Simulated assay, not measured.
Amino acid sequence: MLNPTDKLPCLCRGEELRALALRGVVGQSLKADRQPLIRGFPDDRLQAVLADLFPGKRFAAAPGVSAPDAGGDEFADLLDLLLEHLALPDESGICLCHAVAMAAMGENHLWQDMGLPDRRALSQLLRDNFPVLAAKNIGDMKWKKFFYRQLCERAGVPICKAPHCAECCDRVLCFGPEEGSG
């Protein structure tokens, strides 16, 4: 089993961030005894992706432990958005889309729910894997807020209190610093 302190294999920057993010999301699931380890992504396919990224390591949750389906959340809509914008739709990229969508349902900042060291790493991961979508995040809005704004725009639901973010009374909530331990 992979320990969160294990050194990552030497990979190029984009692959290293992808591996770190997948390891982080899986690690969060393992800590919470949650199955599936990555929501909506079959375990056999996940194990194959992880075996490519972490040769010789095995990730397994406790048998019989299953997370309740959180129906009614935006997971499927966010997953569709991410899949549409995925730069390289290979198996680990598709797995990453599921991991990001799952982590976005968490209660902390997205970088924390993905087990990443900081927001900069998350931003780089998203720029590397979803460049067109990430480029739309003008002003460096917090990623969860940005994703929900994208979903609302797609659905034609107005969510802004002001015509421009600079004029909005909630600007600090969307664009303020994201502090906390990873």
Rank of each mutant, 00 (worst) to 15 (best):
D118P: 05
P131Q: 04
I138F: 07
K145Y: 11
Q112G: 07
W143P: 02
M114C: 15
G139D: 09
A135H: 02
Q112I: 13
M102V: 03
A101L: 12
L116E: 03
A103N: 06
A103I: 08
R120Q: 12
L122D: 04
W143L: 09
G106H: 05
K144A: 06
D113C: 10
R149L: 14
Q124N: 09
L116C: 08
A135C: 08
P117W: 08
N137E: 06
L126D: 01
M114I: 12
Q124A: 11
Q112N: 09
L133V: 03
K142I: 00
L125R: 00
A101I: 08
C152Y: 11
R119M: 03
G115V: 05
I138H: 14
L125K: 04
A135L: 10
N137D: 06
N108M: 06
R149I: 09
R120F: 11
A103H: 04
L133K: 01
P131N: 10
G139N: 07
D113E: 12
L110H: 07
Y148F: 13
M114H: 07
S123P: 04
A101N: 13
A135K: 13
A134P: 06
K142P: 02
L116A: 09
E107A: 14
D118M: 08
K145G: 04
V132M: 01
F130G: 00
E107D: 11
D128Q: 12
L110D: 04
G106A: 10
M102S: 13
F146S: 06
M105I: 05
M114F: 10
R149M: 12
R119S: 10
G115T: 07
D140H: 13
G106P: 09
N137L: 07
K144R: 14
R120V: 10
F130L: 01
A101S: 15
A134G: 01
W143M: 13
R127W: 02
P131R: 03
C152D: 14
V132G: 02
A135S: 14
G115Y: 05
G115Q: 06
S123K: 05
K144W: 02
C152M: 12
A103R: 02
M141D: 02
K142F: 02
R119A: 14
A121K: 12
S123Y: 00
K142A: 06
L126A: 01
A103F: 06
N129V: 01
Q112D: 03
N129K: 01
